[in-house]
Computed example of a mutant assay.
Amino acid sequence: MSVEAYCMKCKEKKVMKDPVAGETKNGKPITKGKCPDCGSTICRIGSMK
């Protein structure tokens, strides 16, 4: 499973490490993971495909 998201620290799209599906406070699907380079949390709105 490779999910891409934009890393705010690296300023480019990265493939998430350990992506996890979840929900926002208002019930929308979100995918959270870690940046493979800097280790910060990166998020993508939408479910994992």
Rank of each mutant, 00 (worst) to 15 (best):
M1E: 10
M1Y: 11
M1P: 04
S2T: 11
S2W: 05
S2I: 03
V3S: 04
V3M: 03
E4T: 09
E4Q: 14
A5E: 03
A5I: 06
A5G: 14
A5Q: 04
A5T: 03
Y6M: 03
Y6N: 11
Y6L: 07
Y6A: 06
C7W: 05
C7T: 07
C7D: 03
M8G: 13
M8E: 15
M8S: 13
M8V: 12
M8P: 12
K9Q: 14
C10R: 07
C10M: 11
C10Y: 09
K11D: 14
K11L: 13
K11Y: 14
E12A: 12
K13M: 13
K13V: 02
K13N: 13
K13P: 04
K14M: 00
V15T: 10
M16Q: 05
M16R: 02
M16C: 01
K17S: 05
K17C: 00
K17G: 02
D18Q: 08
D18R: 09
D18S: 13
D18H: 10
P19W: 11
P19L: 05
P19F: 04
V20H: 05
V20Q: 08
V20T: 10
A21Y: 07
A21M: 12
G22Q: 10
E23M: 15
E23G: 07
T24Q: 13
T24R: 15
K25T: 10
N26Q: 15
N26S: 15
N26Y: 15
K28N: 12
K28Y: 14
P29M: 01
P29K: 14
I30K: 11
T31W: 02
T31H: 00
K32F: 02
K32D: 00
G33T: 00
G33W: 01
G33N: 04
K34C: 01
K34R: 14
K34P: 00
C35G: 07
C35T: 04
C35R: 03
P36C: 00
P36G: 00
D37H: 12
D37M: 05
C38I: 11
C38S: 10
C38V: 13
C38L: 13
C38F: 11
G39W: 09
G39L: 07
G39C: 06
S40W: 14
T41Y: 10
T41G: 04
I42A: 03
I42C: 02
I42W: 02
I42P: 02
I42E: 00
I42H: 03
I42R: 00
C43F: 11
C43I: 03
C43H: 09
R44C: 01
G46V: 04
G46C: 01
G46P: 00
G46L: 00
G46D: 07
S47I: 01
S47N: 14
S47R: 11
S47F: 07
M48V: 03
M48A: 08
M48N: 12
K49E: 10
K49I: 01
